[in-house]
Design a binder for these strands. Structure first.
Lengths: 342, 342
DNA sequence: AAGGCAGATGGTAGCGCTACCCATGACGCC
DNA sequence: GGCGTCATGGGTAGCGCTACCATCTGCCTT
């Protein structure tokens, strides 16, 4: 009376089956798969033959329990549809697809509380690394990240006080550079238009303000913002508001490219000449900025690269090779185009 | 000489700690958390007090191992940056954020082989449900889905032979409706422009062709496609090609909105009147279609709703309440706008 | 020749939880 | 009064894997 091989497991082969078939101990199979260098050539071959024949795939849950470490990267972004984060995610994904790490996704909806909740969900599972967007965690989130016991990479921005590592660029400098460019080109009454003013947007606005003040051009009425999520539609509406408020407006620095596109379309619709009557600068440099007519000046941000590098740094840290410099600024690039060429 | 509470666990409280503190058995704690109805009011209160006091959070890995079921939804999409899938993902995410399910993301890069690989990675972990984009799985992928032992929802499209459940709409009908609209409006030499012709794009093209043939307008030279991934830039280039090939072109049905936007910008740039000289129709109806100048006719697709419904159906199936009708067609909607209003 | 040491392999004992089965007591039924 | 049934709770035995330590071999050192 043989007892059933497994009550619940659905009959999938286990490491013990492989070990039996290969005539070795289970632990040796485990090693052959995880640290091949520590098993002799001969046994390794035998074991792999057994693995192939049985179609054995290790159970990640059992692995996670036994080693107190899941092969999972937790990734927290504030939005799934914002193409900026989609590209970061793509970078993360592409850098991880060769490895056996899985990606677990969290959407914070730009909410610190939601971020805390997600970290509390991710933590007990002991992820291999955590990648979170932004550097403005709540004290609670920060504590959760610090005690997560795994590498943490804050992305999209750089700052002075990393939880662990950081990859990003300075939004303040980006906003400043965009604004300075418009000032140099001869624009004077330059508005700032922004939706959903998250901390990064706030810092771009601060950069705008610094540039305007330095040039003696600052005027609070030039700023038009809303807490509503960003969209092309909203760009049009905010531009109308801005123009109604300041009819002498001769340029706009848009907090992102969606807004800039909305502004451009509204200019078309209202027959406002771009760049002659109104200059437009966006932020992020999405693909379409170059194709638009007129093409739109924007700040190119290294989103995909941020994703890739964050993974590279996390993997290095997992391997015990922490980078010398935990904070990496990937910079940005001003792309001057027709929309500010007068 | 008390032996250390835990060699590897990092000292986090376990279910045994809670049980001891509450003066009950471990299994009762487990039940109180998972099936509160089966534990008396009194004990439940005691247990929750102990849980709160200790800050106990169940270990999802141990849970998954013991119950042979991980609280994870596996989601496979062909692209992270295509905003169509980003919105499906958002729908999935929003419907799952109240539950304790986590989301594990896979990017197939429009590759059947990669899809197979990912299913092989997801399977051993015994996810609670799998949501995959598309209905054109390889035979191997299909087998993996069928033997996954969990609810499976194929999304974005409907078809006759679901692995388990399906939520989507007919791309053929969408392509046909868009083309018929243009024919009715008076366009005759209507081109089809498409990038990365995945199976869904192929079916939209088939719909276009059916409509053109029915009207006696079909001409193979009107079709311009490329395997390159879609982008606004590409839309412009393909439109140039199309126009060079067929100078009498008087309209284009674009396989998606990115392409349509590229076409619109090129028309602006080349001073081609829209909708007078060229009519434009897109597909998906992204936010910006309505704001564009002229606004662009498009087929609105229920992407967010697809995400939400797919989760609702999966959750129902997990709870043992399989829907009567496993295939749900959410339809689409033609949005007529200025770009075809002549 | 004894000791030391590194490399290769295995055995044992969990990791933290839940499936399965059983114990107990209260209640209702014939 | 015997017995089934239900509600409530607990004990035991894993789930499939890996950490930890032990063992064994061969070879080098002195």
């Amino acid at each position: 009376m043989t007892k059933p091989r497994s009550r619940r497991g659905g009959g999938r082969p286990t490491i013990a089956d492989v070990a039996r078939k290969a005539g070795v101990g289970a632990i040796t199979v485990s090693r052959a798969l995880r640290e091949p260098g520590r098993v002799s050539e001969d046994l390794r071959r035998q074991i792999h033959a057994a693995v192939d024949e049985l179609g054995y795939l290790p159970d990640p849950n059992a692995r996670a329990l036994a080693s107190a470490r899941a092969e999972v990267f937790g990734v927290l972004v504030p939005s799934l549809t914002n193409s900026v984060f989609a590209e970061v995610l793509r970078g993360i994904y592409d850098s991880l697809s060769d490895s056996s790490y899985r990606i677990q996704l969290g959407n914070t909806h730009y909410s610190g509380l939601e971020e805390e909740r997600l970290l509390q969900v991710f933590g007990p599972q002991r992820p291999a690394a955590l990648i979170v967007a932004g550097i403005d965690q709540t004290p609670m989130s920060r504590r959760l990240l610090e005690t997560a016991g795994c590498p943490v990479v804050q992305v999209m921005e750089t700052g002075p006080d990393p939880v662990d590592m950081m990859v990003g660029f300075s939004h303040f400098d980006g906003g400043k550079a965009a604004t300075e460019h418009m000032i140099e080109t001869g624009y004077r009454r330059i508005g700032f238009i922004g939706a959903r003013m998250d901390p990064r947007s706030q810092r771009r606005l601060a950069g705008y303000r610094a540039a305007m003040e330095a040039a003696g051009l600052f005027d609070a009425r030039l700023i038009t913002t809303t807490p509503v999520p960003s969209s092309v539609t909203l760009g049009r509406e905010l531009f109308r508001d801005a123009l109604a408020k300041v009819p002498t407006l001769d340029g706009v620095f848009c907090n992102n490219d969606d807004i800039a596109l909305g502004v451009l379309f509204e200019c078309h619709r209202a027959s406002i000449a771009v760049p002659k009557t109104i200059g437009i600068t966006g932020f992020n440099d999405l693909d379409m900025m170059e194709v638009a007519f007129p093409s739109i000046t924007s700040i190119r941000t290294p989103r995909y690269e941020i994703g890739r590098l964050s993974v590279a740094m996390a993997l290095a840290a997992i391997a015990g090779k922490r980078p010398q410099e935990p904070v990496v600024d990937l910079g940005f690039e001003l792309r001057c185009r027709e929309s500010t060429a007068r």
